[in-house]
């Protein structure tokens, strides 16, 4: 049965109008989404303090930009359908039904193809970013090795080559650093939010992560795994200083460069 009482030619015209309106809606949503994606995440995540974080922020922005048109399609379709075909008042028996549209091969095909392509793109991007992050510390100067020990509810940092231990993390700028992370008791998670690195501190096992801090400043070390009573307080400072200041600090702690 036909609920579309319109003649075929009018229907054709209305279809192109539909597409036009939809495209406009989609474009508006996409543009809004892209603007949001370009400004907001970067603003929230703050200036990056390491090459890893730069990569993280770029990936985040990229993914946001890439997903803006996807979300826009869904929202445009939802909003348009609501504006155009909303029923005024409640349904009553005898009201006409919608068209018996049980599927549309072309639409489905395009939909599946596009989402697969997008997924593939994200995967490739992600793998590339992963290899970049992994190889970050492998390049350049000899990495500074720091042993990180989590315990309930403090971090201690040991610089084995320098013979220094501290509750604070002090890093020389632009020098690769490798963190060997372990725990004395339960699982903690060693997180440097401004530097985009995180790895769990597991008891009995050593895990590692690395980065190159590239911005002077005072940052944070936080625990990102619920570790008991004072989990929320398990944080300390991370200072990125110049190479000279680092040597001075090491000396001040009784270590050797």
């Amino acid at each position: 049965m036909s609920v579309e009482t319109t003649p075929a030619d009018r229907q054709g015209r209305s279809r192109s109008e539909e597409l036009k309106t939809l495209t406009i809606l989609w474009a508006i949503f996409t543009v809004l989404g892209v603007i949001f994606a370009l400004i907001v995440p970067h603003h929230l995540m703050g200036p990056s303090a390491s090459n890893t974080m730069t990569e993280v922020e770029r990936t985040f922005t990229m993914f946001s930009v890439a997903s803006a048109p996807v979300a826009a399609v869904v929202w445009a379709l939802a909003v348009y359908s609501l504006m155009r075909w909303r029923r005024r008042g409640a349904w009553k028996e005898g009201d006409p039904d919608g068209p018996p549209l049980r599927g549309h091969g072309m639409t489905s095909g395009i939909w599946i193809f596009l989402s697969s392509a997008l997924c593939l793109f994200l995967l490739i991007w992600g793998l590339a970013a992963l290899s970049k992050v992994d190889s970050a510390a492998a390049s350049g100067a000899t990495p500074l090795e720091i042993d990180v020990t989590g315990q309930q509810w403090v971090w201690t940092f040991s610089y084995p080559s320098q013979g220094v231990e501290s509750d604070q993390l002090v890093l020389p700028v632009n020098r690769p650093v490798v963190f060997k992370v372990t725990s004395d008791d339960v699982i903690h998670s060693f997180w440097l939010p401004e530097m985009g690195i995180k790895v769990d501190a597991n008891p009995g096992v050593t895990t590692s992560t690395s980065t190159v801090p590239d911005r002077l400043g005072l940052y944070h070390v936080r625990c990102a795994e619920l570790c008991g009573l004072l989990h929320a307080d398990m944080e300390t400072n991370a200072r990125v200083v110049t190479s000279d200041d680092f040597d001075t600090w090491i000396a001040g702690q009784g270590g050797h460069a």
């Binding site: 008791d185 008991g228 009573l229 004072l230 307080d233």
Partner: peptide, 28 residues
């Protein structure tokens, strides 16, 4: 601020940070 004991002196089966170490008013 908060303070606590960092020597594992609590009861508890694992890592001795349970019991008094993990309860307010005993070792913190």
């Amino acid at each position: 601020y908060i303070w606590n004991c960092e020597f594992p002196c609590g009861d508890g089966y694992y890592a001795k940070f349970g019991g008094p170490m993990s309860t307010r008013g005993y070792m913190s």
